[in-house]
């Protein structure tokens, strides 16, 4: 499981304050905690913070790069910010994200290839989030085709099946599972499948429980990456256990410790 820690996001009050106060150590602390908890990469999102999104993004990247060589997942909807930030980054990078719209893919996929980045592509188009399996599969196919056309290695592509909260869209989790099952047959090797996992439980009461159950189900369907709360200890353990049960990690009695020591 490729875990991208989600906590460096201006949406969180601590992060917002740190950005505004230019408090590098606060950002670095969150970075380290996530990596220690088993995150493979770190998402960086400036969120709704005052000032230039690009300046804020570059400052956060700089802060994180001072403490780790882990890949950085640059999370911004703005192409210009993405482009500049990618070039400012010396750690490996992941573009987060493009939508399944042809014109967008024609900009983002070449950017990924040019900068040697990996790319997250959402199954969202101009009509929004598809309501069923078929819509996701169709958009997934568009993404895979475009990636191939521009020469992006499938191993560097993350198709994000876009989960929305179960309390407002109860049919969506099953649609995500069905879409992963179908899309993994589209190419050999298949692309990676990713989710912004915590979204499934947005505004729900049992957030951690929902995230945990869903991550296990998704891993069973073929999910191999997630932008998620690496600091949720039990969630991480469940994800690792699911992989052990599918023999994606080799069992040993101390398999949690084994997984962590393989970081």
């Amino acid at each position: 499981m490729f875990v991208i820690g989600e906590r460096i996001n201006g949406m969180f009050v601590k992060v917002k304050k740190a950005i505004e106060a230019r408090d590098k150590s606060a950002i670095q602390k969150i970075a380290r905690r996530q990596l220690d908890a088993g995150a493979d990469a770190l998402d960086i999102n400036v969120g709704p913070v005052r000032g230039s999104a690009l300046d804020n993004m570059c400052w956060m990247i700089e802060a994180v790069e001072e403490v780790t060589d882990a890949p950085i997942c640059i999370d911004t909807p703005k192409f210009d910010v993405m482009n500049e930030a990618l070039h400012a980054c010396s750690n490996p990078t992941i573009i987060n994200s493009t939508k399944a719209i042809e014109e967008e893919l024609d900009r983002y996929v070449p950017l990924a290839v040019e900068t040697g980045s990996q790319l997250v592509a959402l199954t969202i188009d101009k009509t929004g989030v598809p309501k069923d399996v078929d819509g996701r599969v169709a958009m997934g196919a568009t993404i895979i085709t475009k990636a191939m056309e521009h020469g992006l290695d499938m191993r560097d592509l993350y198709v994000d099946l876009v989960i929305i909260p179960v309390n407002v869209a109860p049919k969506q989790p099953a649609a995500v599972l069905g879409a992963i099952g179908q899309l993994k047959m589209f190419s050999d090797p298949p692309p990676n499948f990713i989710l912004g996992l915590s979204n499934v439980s947005q505004s729900c009461k049992e957030r951690s429980l929902l995230n945990s159950a869903f991550v296990a189900m998704c891993i069973g369907a073929g999910l191999n990456a997630a932008i998620m709360d690496a600091l949720d200890h039990e969630l991480m353990e469940i994800a690792i256990t699911a992989e052990v049960l599918l023999q994606k990690q080799l069992y040993c009695d101390d398999y949690i410790a084994a997984y962590m020591s393989n970081k």
């Binding site: 069992y251 101390d254 084994a258 020591s261």
Partner: peptide
Amino acid sequence: DINLSKQLHILLRD
């Protein structure tokens, strides 16, 4: 058994 090997290596590492 590779599972047992893995377990032993983690014990030794610990």
